[in-house]
Design a protein around this nucleic acid. Structure first.
Length: 310
DNA sequence: GCGCAGGGGGTCG
DNA sequence: CGACCCCCTGCG
């Protein structure tokens, strides 16, 4: 009985996922609409997906490593999974949501949005873990995407759990408890820069349950949720809106305004000479007025379109 | 090639 | 409204 739990008679390190918990799985959906990996992973909502040489994307979702590839009209999901891959993917990729209908509705707004929807027709907004999304977008502040991805990778490597798959090593995003082991200095040495104390203090607040993430999911009112998020160090209006939109909180009635969105809204509608002088309130009310309670999704089409062309 | 500014998914005081 | 860590990028 000296057994399968141990590989070559050697005990796994404490932070390695036990092999018997993990299983290689596969799930295929045929004839998909509104699902394009490039659009989904490169529209700026996530930081833990990378393109592989064969054109597939590989990412970490909770304690699972997933690979996603589009072949013709089919999507092939493979993974080293702890949970059932179909359930993971259905929830994470929000597969039960009818994007055809959403796109139809938004396309009627005007030709600008219609064109951006044609450009990013395969965008879907993910259900990302709330905790991971909070930390990731705190790190995103005044930062660029390659560096954000690097920092998150380093955090995971230092404090998350190891998963081996197909000869490669992956790391889960650390839990609240796991990340709470990092001191401000530890975080600084991983390259977080001035965000170190934000991540540290936010982690503490959540660890102490000054903010209860489970309870946040019970809150219906988006404004109340935003106010709660804004109490976290490092979370300002833009980051709060990203968390509301890209996490399992799943609010479409928000409109995160970054430099790209401000640019596109100014170019299309406001047309001020100096886009940096465009009032945020003006953009917010314009978005609400034009896109209604789907403004968050509209934001993603516009962002992806404008950003990709830049 | 290297070295050096410039700026980046904002937030805070 | 200016400072802020640090890395990546682009130019000379």
């Amino acid at each position: 009985m000296y057994n399968s739990k141990y590989k070559n008679g050697e005990r796994y390190k404490w932070n390695t996922k036990k092999e018997e918990d993990m299983e290689e799985q596969k799930y295929i959906i045929k004839n998909v609409q509104s699902f394009e990996p490039k659009h989904i992973f490169e529209c700026g909502q996530c930081f833990r997906w990378d393109k592989a040489e064969d054109g597939s994307y590989i990412g970490i979702v909770k304690n699972n490593v997933l690979s996603v590839k589009k072949e013709g009209k089919d999507i092939i999901f493979k993974g080293m999974c702890e949970e059932n891959i179909k359930q993971i993917c259905t929830y994470y990729f929000d597969l039960d949501r009818n994007y055809e209908q959403i796109k139809q509705t938004l396309s009627k707004v005007d030709h600008y949005l219609e064109n951006s929807i044609l450009y990013g027709s395969g965008i879907r907004i993910l259900n990302q873990d709330l905790w991971e999304t909070i930390i990731s977008f705190i790190i995103s502040a005044n930062n660029n995407i390659p560096r954000i991805k690097g920092i998150i990778q380093k955090l995971s490597q230092a404090y998350g759990n190891k998963i081996e798959w197909d000869g490669k090593t992956y790391y889960t995003f650390p839990t609240v408890k796991e990340l709470s082991k990092a001191s401000v200095q530890d975080l600084r040495s991983l390259g977080l820069g001035f965000r170190d104390k934000y991540v540290y203090e936010t982690t503490r607040k959540i660890l102490n349950e000054e903010i209860n993430l489970n309870k946040m999911h019970e809150q219906i009112d988006t404004e109340k949720l935003r106010k709660t998020l804004l109490t976290l160090p490092g979370v300002g209006p833009k980051v709060a809106d990203c968390i509301l939109l890209f996490s399992t909180l799943k609010r479409f009635d928000v409109f995160p305004i970054d430099v790209w969105v401000r640019r596109v809204m100014n170019d299309l509608y406001i047309k001020k000479e100096d886009e940096t002088k465009v009032n945020k309130k003006e953009i917010e009310s314009l978005a609400k007025q034009k896109y209604g309670n789907l403004e968050g999704i509209a934001q993603q089409y516009l962002f992806y379109w404008k950003r990709d062309l830049a």
